[in-house]
């Protein structure tokens, strides 16, 4: 039986094959999955906000900037090679129409932007994104093959 670990909001976790990491019901939050396909280790972060408030060093997993850095560092500690790390990013929806001020980025957009930026800063290649929209996602990352399965309520599911 393959072990699947569900991540709560603000949590980050690393694992090695054959484990799976899952986030159920991702809305405006963002999931960042990084893995090393050869070592078959990696990790996922369930990010709430782009960056930490000033002077706060707590809850690295909540913020895109700190969570990405932490999940990369933890993956390397578990045996991943930095240069081999690949990333997949999903989430960042706008769930309710009332916060649709089209001219302004939503918190989901900002989360995605911050996560992508942090990955670039960390030198991790981003090979897949499935972001935005107005729907929730359940995501399951499989360390065995590096796949990220995204399931939605109305739009079926896909593997990236």
């Amino acid at each position: 039986m393959t072990r699947t670990k569900a991540l709560r909001a603000g949590e980050l976790r690393v694992a090695e094959a054959p484990a799976r990491l899952a986030i159920h019901g991702l809305g405006s939050c963002v999931a960042v999955f990084v893995y090393d396909p050869r070592a078959r280790v990696g990790g996922m972060a369930h990010i709430l906000l782009p960056g930490p408030p000033k002077g706060s060093a707590d809850h690295a997993g909540r913020y895109a900037t700190t969570a990405v850095a932490a999940v990369v560092a933890e993956s390397i500690r578990l045996g991943a090679k930095r240069a081999a790390l690949l990333a997949k990013v999903t989430g960042g929806s706008r769930m309710f129409a009332y916060d649709a001020r089209k001219d302004r980025p939503t918190v989901g957009d900002k989360n995605v932007e911050a996560a992508l930026g942090a990955l670039r800063d960390a030198g991790v290649e981003i090979i897949a994104t499935d972001v935005g929209g107005d729907h929730g996602r359940t995501v399951v990352a499989d360390l065995q093959d590096g796949s990220l399965t995204i399931t939605t309520v109305r739009r079926g599911s896909k593997v990236v």
Partner: peptide, 20 residues
């Protein structure tokens, strides 16, 4: 705002507002 979706997805904004 109306959404038919997963509980996790429709409560994200509540957490986000409080998390900071």
């Amino acid at each position: 705002g109306l959404a038919v979706d997963m509980v996790g997805a429709v409560t994200d904004h509540l957490l986000i507002e409080l998390a900071a």
